[in-house]
Structure formats: structure tokens, C-alpha cells
Design a protein around this nucleic acid. Structure first.
Lengths: 338, 338
DNA sequence: TTGAAAGCGCTAACAA
DNA sequence: TTGTTAGCGCTTTCAA
């Protein structure tokens, strides 16, 4: 392994100068010297050791990301966008999946902190607050790194929360269904305890109330935010004779399960079942007949998260900053043709 | 930030002893001293700095993973299994998506090497060999870290290749279709240039030839291994009057696109279109009517990959070792009910 | 513009 | 069983 000293020797200079060249500072280097250093680097195939740099400068170019499960399409898209943003800012991702395991999540946090991660981004989670608190809280509290929570309310560690307008988006989506003449709109929800879920249910309820419809008369289903559980629940729900004709689904992941179940049962969308959803993941586009869904600005959320971690534009912020981004309803064909 | 020296002071011992306690060696520590050290660690909330350890011991607990795109379900499952295995062996993943961008892939490789990654795992890629070679080859050749290529042939860097029996699996899958009486089986393939794709096409061809069926008469479609491109191609393919009644699809990702397109066009599976596929991702289970598919042993592949990176059981291996794992056909309902 | 040198937090050889 | 200490490769202050 080639070190900086060897480059310096090859270039006939000191290792400090090699540093100045590589880092473009903090001292100037004459053109002639710079050329010799560059040549030496090239000749020896030198690559800086990021670990040594990190130790010396006590700052790394690593951002930790903890996702519930990247095989969840929403998480996966967010993770990819985070990588895009991190890359654009010269950083790299350590990625961990918590897969609903609190100990595993805590372990990831410890590892990331040990690796001197610049900060940690949590991608929406199905954890209830209690569980999250248990194993992770103690660790995070002692850490002095920026924390960003995407799509979940979580401010007790002083981190930044990036949310979308869950309530407004859910309301708009539900109203879209009501505009198609439905008076019965099932609430196909995630498991409660998660703030985004509560807000989306509130938005659904808002829409019904505003239309003068009895909320308590509506069907309610609660499943984890994944397509497999949603599939099972939807099979049961849609098999009954009193099956709903319209569903507000809390996530596109769940909608995928619902659509699979409907197809399996020979139900057509939107004729036999109207469906409106939340998230706007890429697959919503091709999920037949084209999912009408409240789209989250995923790329923007990711960029904001990375900026927050890197401390850009975080100056005037209070400890428990919360950022709420808008959602836009993408009308396709799952509720009808408009 | 609490350091080892501070712990030592608190415990009234030397920092070496603290090391011995933390690392369980290489020297013994008396029970009494150990207890004091542990108490000090606890009291001060000390956490070892992995960066310093890595620099000193010139070995890290990081494994680099480069996926084509984790939002591809097959890649995502492999990535998750890699994490499981890495965790079980006390390691962590640096993850990068190449998203079909050779420069980005090369950048990831450089970063991972700079971070002193223990090794790099490449998850199947749609790169042709030429493109892969271009930017990445030079870097890898100079690196002295173990390389593992999952689901792609790539031995010129001396890495280990972990493959499945693509040809045998494809043949078996196609034969399954032939057993249902189909004489025309379209080959819905990935873009050529990728070894797995070539092998799967060969297996498809094997099955037809063995049944005395003209291979050249068959329909051929080539799309990237993703659901979106497959959806578009399948829409076109299935819209025609001479649409195929049976398809061998090279990946479940593509099958998802095909099924979406079929549903969109009102085609029923398997009545109007029989489909057999490859990979066995989790979604194949709920994709209506249940996808018959040649399943890859993903967890086993991941475990093997991590072991290879960590050098376990790699002793007697030659430089260009290749590991071929079996595939098993999971019969569900997309070709009929058996 | 360049060089010498201290030291980031840790490991482990060596000495006691 | 415990302590002392030399460095891992790098950054940056300070002096030249």
C-alpha cells in the first residue's frame, strides 16, 4: 500500500506538500511542485487512506442510513435518492435495515457512530414510539451527531424531522374518491402508533366529515406497510359479499398487495373497486390500471435530509426543527378516468 | 468524545489494559481489573472509535456492496441477505448503487477502497463486459482486496464468482411450459452481453431443441432486467393479434412488468397467457396468480459471498474460483394448476 | 512556497 | 497481570 510519504519521496518534497496538493490547501503550492506531486501520485498509483484522514481530521465522509427495509419500495426509493444526494455532496452511505427489529436498529446506530458517521438518517419506520425509544434512545442521546427523521415524528433527540403533509394529502386523496360518487371509502391503514399513519387517517376522516358522511360507519383495516400483509388482508376484505367499492390505502406498498388481491379475485379496477393511495413510488405508474396516488417529493426530502446532516442551512434552526413538504395528487386510472 | 485514555484514568489503569478488556485479549486481565474497566466504560459512556482501530490494525469491519439498483427487487433481496450475513460475522455494509452508470460504479469502488473495505461484492449487473472493464478494471486490479461477483461472470480480477445454474434452471422452467402443451414459448430476455442472460437463453433453447421444436420460429424480446422496461415491451408484445400464449421470462422483475401489462390488457394468466420465470423473489408469491419460477438460493449466495470476502474456506481456492449453486423450480399457478 | 513535527485514538510488542 | 511506548497515514500548525 502506497502512503503519502512514499509519494513525497518520489516527488522529492515533503508529505505536507503532498497534502496541500491533494486537498487543494490550506497552503499554496507552486505549479512546478504540484506537477511533480501529481506525477508521483500517478506513477505510484497512490490512493489516500480515508480512514487515516478521518482519524486525523475527526470528520468522515460517511452518512449512516437506517431504513426499515429497503425491499419496501418506498424505503428503497428514498435510500437511492439519499445516495444521489450524498454523492453530490461527496459523501457515502453506510446502510442498515432494521427490519422491525429494535435491537438490530440499535446495533446499526452503534456501528455507525463508531465509524464516526457524519450523521444518521432514519427512513420512515413502522416502529411505535415506545419501541423506538427503548434501545435506541440512550445511544442517540449521548451522540453528538445530526439526526434526521424522514417520514416519522421523532424530535426528542433534537433531530430534524422531515415530513410531508400527510393529513392534507390523505384528505385530498379521499375527496377524489368522494368526487367519483363513493359514499363508502374504506380506510386501509398502517398499524397505528406511527405518526404518519395517524395523520393520514385524520385526513381521510376530514374528507368524510366535510362531506357529511358518517365516519364510524366506514370499514377499517390495519396492516403493516408492506405488500404481503396487505395482500392477505385485502384477500379477506375483498372476498366478502359486503366488500368495499372504494379504498383509501395508506401506502403504495399496500396498494400493490390490494391490486394483486383484487386481480386474483377477478375484480377489475376501477369498475369493481376504486383505489386511491399514498406515496407515489415508481411502480404506481405501471400498477394496472395506473394508480391514483398522493405523491411525496422523495428526491427533495432526500436532498434536504443530506443538507441537514451536513449542516447546510441549519444555522437558525431550533433543536427540534420540523420540515413539512407538500404532496401532490397524481391522478391516473384507479378511481376512474379522471 | 471519551477516549480510551480517559477510561484508563477513570479505572486507575493503563490504556493497554482497557484494550485487553475490550478486545478480550491478547493479554489476560484479572477479574477485579476487568470489573473496574467495565465500570469506567459504563460510567463515561465510552464507545471505541472504529476509525482509529481500523487505522492501527489496518483492517476494517466494512464490506462494500455495489448493486445495480436496490430498487430492483432481486438486488434488494440480495442486499438484505448480504446485510444479514455481514451482521452475523460482525461486519457492516457500505452500499452503492451503480444504476447502470459506469463512472458511478468506479467512484463507489474508489470510495470503498479508500475506506479500507474488507472486500467488495458486486450484485448482478446489466453491464456488458466491455463497459464493466472500462472504468473499474484498472482500479480493482491494483487493489488487494477480495472481490465477489454475484450472478455475473467476471474472473479477470481474480475474484470469486457465485452463480446459479442458469442454463439448467431455464431449461427446467421452459420444459414446464412445454409440459403444459405449449409449442410456442417466447423468450423474454434481458439484454445480451450479460453472462446469466446468455445462459438462460441457452437453457430455453435446450428445452425446445430437446422437444424437437424449431427455436428460430420463436418470439424473442430483449429488455433490461427491470419491470418498467418489461412492462412497455410486454404491452406491445401482448397487444398484437399474434401474441404469444406462453412466455419464459428471464427474471421475476420482468415478469412483474409482464403481468401488469397482461392485466392491463384484460388478459388472464394462465388461461390467456402462461408464464414461467426466474429468480424466486418474494413478490413472485403474491403476483397473481402466483408465479411459477426458478428460485435462486439468495440467502445461501449471500452467506457464501460474505464468507469469501472474510476469507473463510478460501484457502485451497484458485484465483478464479467459480461457485455454482442449484436453482429449484417453484410451481405455482402462472402456467396452470400444477 | 516549503518542511518538520505533533498527534488524532487505537493496538500490541516489549518490558517489568 | 500490567504498563510503556512506538507507530498506523494523515492534517495542519509553526517555523523557515
Amino acid at each position: 500500500m502506497v502512503t503519502r510519504d512514499e509519494v513525497a519521496r518520489e516527488a522529492g518534497t515533503s508529505s505536507a506538500v503532498v497534502s496541500y496538493v491533494i486537498n487543494n490547501g490550506p497552503r499554496n503550492v507552486s505549479e512546478a511542485t504540484r506537477a511533480r506531486v501529481l506525477a508521483a501520485i500517478d506513477k505510484l498509483g497512490y490512493r489516500p487512506n480515508a480512514v487515516a484522514r478521518s482519524l486525523r481530521s475527526s470528520s468522515s465522509s460517511i452518512i449512516g442510513v437506517i431504513a426499515t427495509d429497503v425491499s419496501n419500495a418506498y424505503c428503497g426509493e428514498l435510500a437511492l435518492q439519499l445516495e444521489n444526494s450524498a454523492l453530490a455532496h461527496g459523501h457515502t452511505l453506510l446502510l442498515g435495515n432494521s427490519v422491525h427489529d429494535d435491537d438490530r436498529q440499535a446495533k446499526h446506530v452503534e456501528t455507525f457512530l463508531a465509524q464516526q458517521a457524519r450523521g444518521i438518517v432514519f427512513i420512515g419506520s413502522t416502529f411505535g414510539d415506545e419501541q423506538f425509544r427503548a434501545a435506541t434512545s440512550r445511544i442517540l442521546r449521548s451522540a453528538r451527531v445530526p439526526l434526521v427523521f424522514l417520514d416519522r415524528t421523532r424530535t426528542e433527540f433534537g433531530g430534524v424531522t422531515i415530513l410531508v403533509d400527510n393529513r392534507g394529502g390523505a384528505r385530498e386523496a379521499t375527496e377524489h374518491l368522494l368526487n367519483h360518487g363513493h359514499r363508502l371509502v374504506a380506510n386501509f391503514s398502517g398499524v397505528p402508533g406511527h405518526s404518519a399513519i395517524q395523520e393520514r387517517s385524520a385526513g381521510w376522516s376530514d374528507a368524510l366529515s366535510a362531506a357529511g358522511i358518517e365516519v364510524t360507519a366506514q370499514r377499517q383495516v390495519e396492516t403493516p406497510l408492506d405488500r404481503y400483509e396487505a395482500f392477505k388482508a385485502a384477500r379477506t376484505l375483498l372476498s366478502g359479499h359486503d366488500r368495499p367499492r372504494a379504498i383509501f390505502s395508506h401506502s403504495d406498498e399496500q396498494s400493490i398487495g390490494i391490486v394483486h388481491a383484487a386481480t386474483d379475485l377477478g375484480l377489475r379496477i376501477p369498475q369493481d373497486l376504486a383505489l386511491v393511495s399514498f406515496d407515489g413510488i415508481k411502480e404506481s405508474e405501471i400498477l394496472p390500471p395506473g394508480l391514483t396516488t398522493a405523491r411525496q417529493p422523495v428526491a427533495q426530502m432526500a436532498e434536504l435530509a443530506v443538507k441537514m446532516i451536513l449542516g447546510e442551512g441549519q444555522e437558525g434552526l431550533d433543536e427540534q426543527h420540523q420540515e413539512v413538504l407538500p404532496v401532490d395528487l397524481v391522478v391516473r386510472h384507479s378511481c376512474g378516468d379522471h
